[in-house]
């Protein structure tokens, strides 16, 4: 059983569970929408300012939702010690990491994509550089959140105060990735007269490579004795 095949099995399992508990996904979506709304109330109602900050609001909403969804992703594993069951099957811990992290990334990307029309309406933005570029940028950001998020969600799920601990552990680590994702998304929305998008996208790719590499290498140490 090679690592990729195992990862696929675990990814499929997680997707199946998400489907069967899709009521929870709806709740997550409404939570993100509420967050998007609240940001506009928290700032001034100046529409040009809202438009400028739209990308930031979108990513913050996704970030907050990510903590909930990644926490849940590991709650189902600790509920009946199912993660131990996977380990003992045997499944390579790296397969478990890849499967769960990709699953989290897909979920976050889907959430971000669903939020886009709401962002367009609430903050009066347009997709200046086109939808495909936006989808790609959202994907890179989702991957960059999921890679460190998955490993730290695993750590937090076994510690006390797990709900508080995950954002405490994760948010400082995500600053560079989040910054790049927001900047890149803002450029895709507003337009890129000085051709900076490539640089930000490149940064995002570098972050992804580093985070995924670290996560892949270190996850076995986290879940194995």
């Amino acid at each position: 059983m090679n690592i990729l095949r195992g990862a696929w099995v675990i990814l499929a399992k997680d997707m199946l569970i998400e489907w069967r508990t899709r009521a929870r996904l709806n709740a997550l979506l409404f939570f993100s929408l509420a967050t998007l709304f609240l940001f506009s109330f928290a700032g001034s109602s100046d529409t040009s300012l809202l438009r400028q900050n739209a990308a930031g609001y979108l990513w913050l909403a996704v970030l907050f939702a990510s903590v909930l969804s990644m926490g849940e992703s590991f709650r189902i594993e600790s509920e009946n010690s199912a993660l131990d069951g996977l380990r003992l099957a045997p499944a390579d811990p790296r397969s478990i990491y890849l499967g769960k992290a990709w699953g989290n990334a897909i979920l976050l990307w889907t959430l971000a994509v669903v939020l886009v029309p709401f962002m367009i309406v609430l903050y009066d933005v347009s997709l200046t550089m086109g939808l495909p570029r936006l989808l790609g940028t959202l994907a890179l950001g989702a991957l960059a959140i999921s890679a460190p998020g998955t490993i730290h969600a695993s750590i937090a799920s076994n510690a006390r105060a797990r709900d508080v601990l995950l954002p405490v552990l994760l948010f400082p680590l995500l600053v560079p990735a989040l910054l790049s994702a927001v900047r890149a998304t803002a450029l895709v929305i507003e337009g890129d007269p000085m051709d900076q998008l490539t640089s930000w996208v490149r940064l995002l790719i570098v972050f992804n490579v580093i985070y995924w590499g670290l996560g892949f290498a270190l996850f076995p140490r986290v879940i194995e004795d």
């Binding site: 490993i151 750590i155 560079p176 910054l179 140490r221």
Partner: peptide, 21 residues
């Protein structure tokens, strides 16, 4: 083990924070 894992993530991340900012 877990704090060591996290510290490694953090230490790798700090240069990235610097560059991106």
């Amino acid at each position: 083990v877990w704090s060591a894992v996290w510290a490694i993530f953090a230490a790798v991340d700090l240069p990235l924070v610097w560059f991106s900012v």
